[in-house]
């Protein structure tokens, strides 16, 4: 029983933390239709920035904002490469991801990991410190839930503003944005900034939970985030009251559940990334089959 509870806590903790990244990748992948590989670099960027700032004694919540800003800046670079320099979407992401590896090393002072044990984090200080005793074991879940919920609500709000509607148009029909007298390329850059901001925030929260930032923590993040987004949006498509932004967080929790379940089959830890990739492949195929069936039912758009 305790083992199960432990697993459940672990699933929720990590599902929610990575769910923040899924919110960001929802913006780039689902709204903008941009397969953004820079995520593999911005996730550890968020962690490294956080480690550096908390080490010098910065308030951990402000460190979260700084991590978001750093990720957003990296996202702007991806957008700049793609929109202004006309480098393909995949290559722009690869370039930023590769470049960020050095940037992250620079931030950590050349170390592969930076520990900041016993420094105040969002889990140990402030809100995290005043939680009543019986809730202590769930403090990571509660605080991650708080960050994910605030992130989701702010994103929902943004997507209903003028700029947000324009962002959604830019992904759906860039020509319409042009017709409105706006530059769709600029909207793409804004979307990539938001997406990578959330990704870095996710890396920031994970590093505060572990009290460690790891340069290599970005490997597989693209796969993890895309899987969460695709699982979430396709499973909950028909449920009216679940918005896509909530669905992708559920997707992240579900994906984590699948991972934990797979690892319970006593696979070696080294197989983790392989399992991640396999689950993603299954989700992709299932999603393709489902949308293939939907397309056939569509009516001819030229009929009145």
């Amino acid at each position: 029983m305790d083992v199960l509870l432990g697993l459940l806590v672990n699933i929720l903790e990590e599902g929610l933390i990575y769910g923040i990244m899924a919110l960001g990748v929802y913006v780039t992948y689902k709204i903008l239709d941009f397969p953004d590989l820079s995520v593999d670099g911005t996730f550890p960027l968020g962690a490294c920035v956080t480690a550096a700032l908390i080490t010098i004694g910065m308030n951990p919540w402000i460190a979260c904002l700084c991590a978001f800003a750093a990720g957003a800046a990296a996202g702007c670079v991806t957008g700049f490469l793609n929109v202004k320099l006309k480098i393909s979407d995949l290559l722009s992401g690869i370039l930023v991801m590769t470049g960020l590896y050095s940037v992250n090393l620079f931030i950590t002072g050349g170390k592969a990991t930076v520990q900041f044990y016993n420094k105040p984090t969002i889990f140990s200080s402030g809100l995290g410190g005043i939680l009543p005793e019986p809730l202590r074991p769930y403090k990571v879940i509660l605080i991650a839930l708080l960050v994910a919920a605030v992130g989701k609500l702010l994103l929902d709000l943004y997507l209903r503003t003028k700029s947000g509607l324009l962002l959604r148009s830019a992904g759906d029909n860039p020509q319409y944005v042009v017709s409105l007298g706006r530059n769709p390329g600029r909207m793409k850059i804004i979307g990539l900034a938001i997406g990578n901001g959330f990704t870095a925030l996710s890396g920031c929260i994970l590093s505060q939970q572990a009290e460690t930032a790891n340069i290599a923590s970005g490997t597989g993040m693209v796969v993890m985030a895309l899987a969460s987004v695709i699982i979430g949006t396709s499973l909950f498509r028909r449920v009216k009251w679940i918005r896509s932004t909530l669905a992708v967080i559920f997707g992240s929790i579900l994906y984590k559940t699948c991972l934990v379940a797979a690892m319970q089959l006593h696979l070696p830890t080294n197989a983790l990334k392989l399992v991640m990739a396999v689950i993603f492949a299954i989700a992709l195929v299932a999603n393709n089959m489902a949308s293939g069936r939907r397309k056939k039912q569509n009516v001819n758009p030229t009929q009145i």
Partner: peptide, 20 residues
């Protein structure tokens, strides 16, 4: 509704005020 709100805003800034 959202399409028309965007169209009506053409020529003005598309900022953080409510779209519709």
């Amino acid at each position: 509704l959202e399409n028309m709100a965007l169209a009506e805003n053409k020529g003005k800034p598309f900022g953080l005020s409510m779209g519709v």
